[in-house]
Nucleic acid binder design. Structure first.
Length: 465
RNA sequence: GGCGGCAUAGCCAAGUGGUAAGGCAGGGGUCUGCAAAACCCCUAUUCCCCGGUUCAAAUCCGGGUGUCGCCUCCA
């Protein structure tokens, strides 16, 4: 089954066909770096990383790029408040972004361009737009004239008149038309700025992505992605600029993730109802957060709460416990019994998992297949005899499918201290002599130390809390 | 006002024409010295409401209702 994905541009699921053979050019709008990221920001980082990694798993050579907006009003304001320089502040939060996303299992992009490093290309881009008659200078600012771009509104399925009707009226406008947007903003006094043909200033928000895509990936890319709230105006504007200049499609597929909500309200920095990843990972395993996010479809809105995260943790624990139990059985087991039906079952579940992923990256269903596989493995563990090959197949399949989602299914192996080993031996002896009071005492003692014991027909099994 | 998403069990969440996946929570049972883990069984005759199309609709069409969002910085 070939990969199909939902294209915002056509509002349909489409078969995924890259422009050039096996190469996939993918661009994801990255963060404005003036704060730590919240889990709403983490969602696109996680889901598009998952998509990128799945495309790679499927044999594509993915060129993955994600930008950092390191110059804009908010950063300038934050820097002023903190008494820091803009570049230093941006640098700090770029590092924080990498740390937080890495914890969440997100791989670094192949390219992480920044606005400050793309200034010549941005300026050239704007100059060419002016030359072609799509943009105009006005008192040191430069604006894109939306009405000059015929297809404006195609991504957000709105006509320019409808947009016009909803546009807010701005005071002291230098624009010819309320829908025009800034490509270049003249510098205010004491503000970080760059030289340009229109005087000192800095780029508007949308132009960076267009310039970066053109510079590093070319005029047309395969996938352009970001949060749903970016589709208008950000992506609409990017598309207009790029297609006006390049006279070709900017991207074949546009993908947008649904947002994370708190109490059914969008989580955002402006509303102040956000939870920073930086804080959340102090109390929760990052893989639980990733698992939680991937348990729903990337396009659906997703409510966040501590109790939902706890539910996700219970589910993930269940899978990880099964892997641990399979491994425990491996130590004892001889090659007894028929392995073939179980190997076939694992292969069948793996295929089902891949089919779900092929269908617009339906991780919610893919995860449910993982649970089916877990259940089958547990049923197998109920049997008194087991084959090493079957056990191995269960373990490797669960781990492999987890790896596709970048969610670790193998619990970390840390050996027990000697004194703990001794306590376990003492308990075993106590149980043998039917001194259950002492055995329970030791079990409680170990529980306080974070070690949970489980008695099985194949011997003692332990895990850390 | 314009545009878009969503509405499925106590909670979360899949499912675009063939008779309701999966997870969490809960109840009962099995196993166990007791536990733990796990397994088995039970928990939506029904998918926001009202019409329509069809042999057949959670799924398609029409009309409502609720809710979130975009149209202003936002993932």
């Amino acid at each position: 089954m070939a990969i199909h994905l939902y294209n915002t541009l056509s509002r349909k699921k489409e078969k995924f066909i890259p422009l050039e053979g096996n190469t996939v050019k993918m661009y994801v709008c990255g963060p404005t770096v003036y704060n730590y990221i919240h889990i709403g920001n983490a969602r696109p980082a996680i889901v598009f990383d998952m998509i990128r990694q799945y495309l790679t798993y499927s044999g594509y050579d993915v060129q993955y790029m994600s930008n950092f907006t390191d110059v804009d009003d908010k950063i300038i304001r934050a820097a002023k408040e903190l008494g820091e320089e803009v570049p230093a502040l941006a640098e700090k939060f770029i590092s924080a972004y990498h740390e937080d996303t890495a914890a969440l299992g997100v791989k670094k992009a192949d390219l992480h361009p920044r606005v400050m490093d793309t200034m010549p290309e941005i300026i050239t881009f704007i100059e060419l737009l002016i030359e072609k008659g799509y943009a105009y200078e006005s008192q040191g600012d430069v604006y894109f004239h939306t009405r000059s771009f015929e297809n404006y509104g195609q991504l957000s399925t709105q006509s320019i008149e409808d947009l016009q009707a909803g546009a807010r009226i701005e005071t002291g406008d230098k624009k010819r038309d309320p829908l025009d947007f800034a490509l270049w903003k003249a510098a205010k006094p004491d503000e970080i700025s760059w030289e340009s043909p229109w005087g000192d200033g800095r780029p508007g928000w949308h132009i960076e992505c267009s310039a970066m895509v053109k510079k590093y990936l070319g005029d047309t890319i395969d996938i352009h992605a970001g949060g749903q709230d970016l589709s208008f105006p950000h992506h609409e504007n990017e598309l207009a600029q790029s297609e006006a200049l390049n006279e070709t499609k900017m991207a074949n597929y546009w993908m947008h993730n649904g947002y994370i909500q708190i109490d059914n309200e969008k989580m955002s920095k402006s509303l102040g109802n956000f939870i920073l990843v930086h804080d959340l990972i102090k109390h929760h395993k990052p893989e639980v957060i990733r698992f939680f996010i991937l348990q729903s479809h990337y396009r659906s809105p997703l409510n966040f709460s501590e109790s939902l995260l706890e539910s996700a943790k219970s589910g993930l624990d269940r899978i990880q416990t099964t892997v641990r139990n399979l491994k425990h059985r491996m130590k004892e087991s001889a090659d007894l019994g028929e392995a073939k039906p179980w190997i076939a079952l694992a292969a069948e579940k793996k295929q089902a998992f891949l089919n779900e992923m092929d269908d617009d990256f339906n991780t919610a269903n893919a995860v449910s297949v993982l649970f089916d596989l877990t259940k089958a493995a547990n049923q197998y563990l109920q049997e008194s005899h087991s084959s090493k090959l079957a056990l191995e197949t269960f373990i490797s399949t669960i781990v492999e499918l987890g790896d596709i989602l970048s969610v670790p299914m193998e619990p970390e192996e840390r050996l027990l201290d000697e004194d703990i080993e001794q306590l376990i031996e003492e308990r075993t002896a106590a149980r043998k002599s039917k001194d259950f009071a002492r055995a329970d005492e030791i079990r409680d003692q170990l529980k306080d130390m974070g070690i949970i014991l489980e008695d099985t027909p194949q011997g003692i099994r332990w895990k850390r809390e």
